[in-house]
Design a protein around this nucleic acid. Structure first.
Length: 556
DNA sequence: ATAGGGTTAG
């Protein structure tokens, strides 16, 4: 009788709480609900209801992880479900709470192990392993593997899948394969995990082989396609990514339809190729499919693509319609202005971003400095470099220094560039010195140029770039015997461009590659491309360089 | 319960 009443009470309270939580509007509201639970229920029901609140706090977008963590600390004897909830909540990477809650999921796991009553189960480990993917700590992760075996869940499919991801996130594709091949039953997630793992570890051949095998077993889904395309783009093979996209699209990929992620990957490939027609087709395609709304991520990818294809106007139009613009969206648009020589607009947009209360990051300042380099904005460049450090406390990285050195040495300010290099707190790399060397070539600074080139050639004797720049510097100073000496040295030692510089052109939606030596040989005649490229070269020769940044034109 | 997407760079 009593039990029955208690049960009904519990049911009733749970239903009421569900309704309350479903209508919960903000944290203030949640605190009220929490207080109500604490004051109006018995200890037994309390545990049950607190669990519901924890779950709400960690899974709803109206929840709050710090509040959940604080609430969790007040619970005397959390049960396994509560521990699992917290471990799950702290398992995702890229979140800020990694810093506030030192230890993340592992801290909660350790706390659970310190009790004698609660043990992990097959739900605990997939989340814990996911967390291990982000901490890049092999020792901890191997301990987790040991615990997986200790608690007898090493045969669980989800746990095994998690271990594949964990090992490949460290680059241990061998260990990942060992788990994979040892699995008695594999599902689509197992296959996708090992596919993604091989891509992360840079083993493209393995990935392509796996992808092939998956086809035979009719074991490919949208995640498989998206993953292989992402891998190809990141491996610098965007053209192959597009080929895969067409294979998927034309054959219906075995009943697979492109989703938001497919679109963003393909747009990324288009951006890398400068394939404007393809990119615009994708843009139209997503408009046709009304379930593919342009969210922040897709909008950012589009802005980037249009920017890299030289369509600042289109980029700007897409940008205006992006909902909830975050740093990445703003940075993509600033960058679109930057690479197209619209330095002033880039800075205007930066100010607007600050007004919107969006905090710039390292990448934003990289884009700004890049804008300065592309538009010769010396003063603004120096200013941004200072603002980055003093106002935002962002530590400049090698790329920022390379950008500044580029800007200064293009302006002929070699002393200032050298001073910056001398006072750098990090070791300057090839790109920093390379930027300086580029300035030397532009201004015919032979003394510094020779010294630098010699240094860089010693660092990387097989790289042709520095020989060529050095010979350019000699040629500019009419030291043709030195030019001849370098050319002879290069041919005697077989120092050539490893792969000929290659450009791409999009004709009727097909990407064609061509270079001075040859052409990839598709339907369009190589002669037509050769004819056009000569025409363009002739026109370029008629253009007088108008500013310091135009030296490439005279170099042709 | 586990797998996939966007920003800088010389």
């Amino acid at each position: 009788m009593d039990d029955d009443r208690s049960f009904r009470h519990r049911r009733l309270a749970a239903v009421n709480l569900s309704i309350l939580l479903a209508n919960c509007k903000n944290m203030r509201h949640l605190r009220q609900i929490h207080a109500q639970v604490i004051t109006s229920t018995t200890v037994t029901t309390n545990t049950f209801l607190l669990t519901r609140i924890l779950l709400f706090l960690t899974t709803s977008d109206k929840g709050s992880l710090p509040y959940a963590t604080a609430l969790f600390r007040t619970i005397q004897n959390p049960n396994r479900f509560m521990y699992n909830t917290m471990i799950r909540a702290h398992s995702t990477a890229n979140s800020d709470h990694h810093f506030s809650d030192r230890g993340g999921s592992l801290a909660f796991y350790k706390k659970m192990m310190s009790t004698s009553s609660v043990r992990p189960d097959h739900i605990t480990f997939p989340f814990l392993l996911k967390y291990c993917c982000s901490i890049r700590n092999l020792i901890s992760s191997e301990s987790v593997h040991a615990h997986v075996l200790k608690f007898g869940v090493g045969v669980d499919l989800f746990v095994q899948n998690g271990m594949i991801s964990m090992y490949s996130s460290f680059g241990s594709i061998q260990s990942a394969l060992k788990v994979f091949t040892g699995m008695p039953e594999k599902d689509i997630v197992s296959w996708n995990s090992i596919l993604i793992g091989s891509l992360r570890c840079g083993d493209l051949d393995l990935a392509l082989g796996l992808f092939d095998e998956m086809k035979q077993d009719n074991n490919r889904n949208i995640v498989s396609w998206n993953s292989i395309m992402t891998g190809l783009v990141q491996a610098g093979r965007p053209k192959d990514a597009l080929i895969f996209f067409h294979e998927m699209f034309d054959s219906d990929g075995g009943g697979v339809l492109p989703d938001k992620i497919t679109i963003s990957v393909v747009i990324c490939a288009c951006a890398a190729l400068g394939a404007l027609d393809h990119g615009r087709w994708m843009h139209n395609y997503m408009k046709r499919r009304n379930e593919l709304e342009i969210d922040t991520v897709l909008g950012t990818a589009l802005v980037d693509m249009y920017g890299k294809c030289g369509c600042v106007e289109r980029a700007s139009n897409v940008f205006d319609d992006i909902p909830n613009k975050d740093v990445l969206a703003w940075t993509a648009m600033i960058s679109a202005f930057a690479v197209n020589g619209h330095g002033e607009e880039a800075f205007a947009l930066f100010s607007e971003m600050e007004k919107h209360g969006i905090r710039p990051n390292q990448v934003t300042f990289g884009a700004l400095l890049n804008a300065c380099a592309h538009s010769g904005l010396l003063i603004k460049g120096r200013q941004s470099f200072r603002t980055m450090k003093d106002v935002y406390g962002i530590v400049p990285n090698l790329q920022h220094y390379a950008c500044m050195v580029d800007l200064l040495s293009r302006a002929g300010l070699f002393e200032e560039a050298l001073e910056l290099i001398r006072t750098m707190p990090i070791k300057p790399d090839v790109y920093v010195f390379g930027a300086l060397l580029g300035g030397c070539r532009m201004h015919g600074n032979a003394e510094l140029g020779e010294e630098l080139a010699e240094y860089l050639i010693n660092l990387d004797p097989r790289n042709h770039v520095f020989y060529v720049i050095l010979s350019d510097i000699y040629a500019k100073g009419n030291k043709f015997s030195n030019v001849k000496r370098i050319r002879e040295f290069m041919s005697e030692n077989g120092i050539n461009k490893t792969s000929p510089g290659c450009s791409m052109i999009e004709i009727n939606g097909i990407i064609h590659e061509f270079s001075v030596n040859g052409y990839d040989g598709s339907e369009v005649s190589s002669n037509e491309i050769g004819f056009m490229s000569n025409l363009i070269l002739d026109q370029l020769r008629c253009v007088k360089p108008s500013g310091a940044d135009n030296d490439q034109v005279t170099g042709i």
